[in-house]
Nucleic acid binder design. Structure first.
Lengths: 149, 149
DNA sequence: GTAATTGCAAATACTTTGCCACGTA
DNA sequence: TACGTGGCAAAGTATTTGCAATTAC
């Protein structure tokens, strides 16, 4: 997909991708990108909206955030994360990185874990066995964190 | 948790668990249980409602299904499955079984896969490394199935 | 008989869309 | 200037709750 360099994602490189797609770079969009990059964890649209608003000139409407994230999702620049909550959460989706999460059932804290992906092999085997192609996966661990009773 | 026998889940054994919790067994609830057991895949509340209604005497209101599933979720008798759709899907959660899914991005078909769980070990390592306890996980594979273009 | 369960309807929450004014390139 | 973008408000969809009537035990 896309015409992307092999460099890791940064606000700048993602901005460049958007520009190449013919999209316009506005204050709101800059704010939204900053918000996504600053946060180390998946964010709801609400969270993205308010975080974005702390950046110069940015005060995106909720609908604006919604449409921007929709756009970025289509371009595989962000992806949705399943936190078992009542609304959707998103995070930057660097194609070179791997995103599995550890979520506290009690306080809701979310940790991005970096394990050597126990899934890669299974993915290939499953593709063969079930005749599916173009596989990806979503893996979340749920538990109770050290600071919760 | 609970005072459960080691036998696999059946409508009867789950009914027994509910009874022990002091809950009353009604036609609606029987219908909902039947629906969950008959279906081999995760169901939305809508689907559960209409499937339940095909059982003798059962015509549960949507709210009734909602409350019943909520209850069963608390008792760990069902769990939510992340199908990346706009509403929640649930399935029976037999503690002796393992639930990972393979979902077609194109036609939406859902397959319950039974692989030797590549996660079990990782789960223990993660528990140690991050100080979490009582770990469980949610794993879904997404791809395009053999019959889709 | 008593307390749990249910249907109905209303409230809430999140998501999605239409439209026109506005700003970027 | 031209067209993508953004705010506002309304519509759509799923979830959740209150309450009185009903039912299991």
């Amino acid at each position: 997909m896309m015409n992307r360099t092999e460099a890791a994602f940064t606000p700048e490189s993602v901005t460049e991708i958007l520009r190449r797609e013919g999209l316009r770079i506005t204050c709101n969009r800059r704010g939204i990108l900053q918000a996504l990059f600053k946060s180390g964890r998946p964010m709801s649209l609400q969270e993205i909206q308010s975080a974005a608003s702390s950046h110069e000139g940015a005060h995106p409407d909720y609908a604006t955030v919604f449409r921007m994230i929709l756009l970025m999702e289509k371009l595989h620049l962000v992806h949705k994360v399943n936190l078992q909550r009542s609304c959707s959460y998103y995070e930057i989706s660097d194609p070179r990185k791997h995103y599995d999460h550890l979520i506290c059932r009690s306080c809701g804290s979310v940790v991005l874990i970096d394990i050597p992906c126990p899934i890669g092999d299974a993915e290939k085997r499953i593709a063969q066995q079930y005749g599916f192609r173009d596989l990806s996966h979503s893996l979340e661990f749920f538990g109770v964190c050290a600071t919760c009773p």
